[in-house]
Amino acid sequence: MDRELTPSESLRIIETMIGQAKSSFSRMSTYFLLWGVLLIAAMITTYMMRDSGGAWGQGAAWGVVGVIGGIASWIIGASQSKKEPVNNPMDRIVGWVWGSFIITMLLMIFCFGASHRDPGAAIALLTALPTFLTGQIMRFKPLIFGGLLFWVAGVIMFFSGNAAVITATYCIAMLFGYIVPGYLLKRQEDGLRTA
């Protein structure tokens, strides 16, 4: 370890170690899997109960999964932050991207709700942004593709007046935009931990 380094050896060490540090993102797959499943469940519940006239048909499922997902995410985040071996500046940026998304989404739900309009298509379009950015920051193509898919889904949902089409479009976007990338990301994260 203490022998004299040549300049090219030094450069190789620097490049290798910087590369290793760059790939040290916190685990994020759990959030995509959790929210993907919860939001599909909420969408299907709302569709199935749409003619019931009760609170579930009015979208109460979104509120329920929002609370469940929010609490679960908070617990997972608190637990993971204690275990993470590094503080990566990119994690902080990704965190702020999703934080901004949540604030904007809640404000949109409030504004759309107050004007008795369905926020679904607008939220799908908005979801594209953090998903796409996270994919780009992490250089993880399935999430980049997921972001693009949410943009397409948002446009389809906006122009479609058919509840079945809107539900199917949203669920497909969630499946391939959140759950599949989340699963692939989990495999990658597990691989890195055991490598």
Binding site: M1, E4, I13, T16, M17, I18, P89
Partner: peptide, 22 residues
């Protein structure tokens, strides 16, 4: 100009902080 010290600093240059085990 030492293999291990250079590796440590190179790892930390892109991070806010890192644990000993990392």
């Amino acid at each position: 100009h030492n293999q291990l010290r250079l590796a440590i600093v190179s790892l930390l240059v892109g991070l806010d902080s890192a644990d000993f085990n990392f």
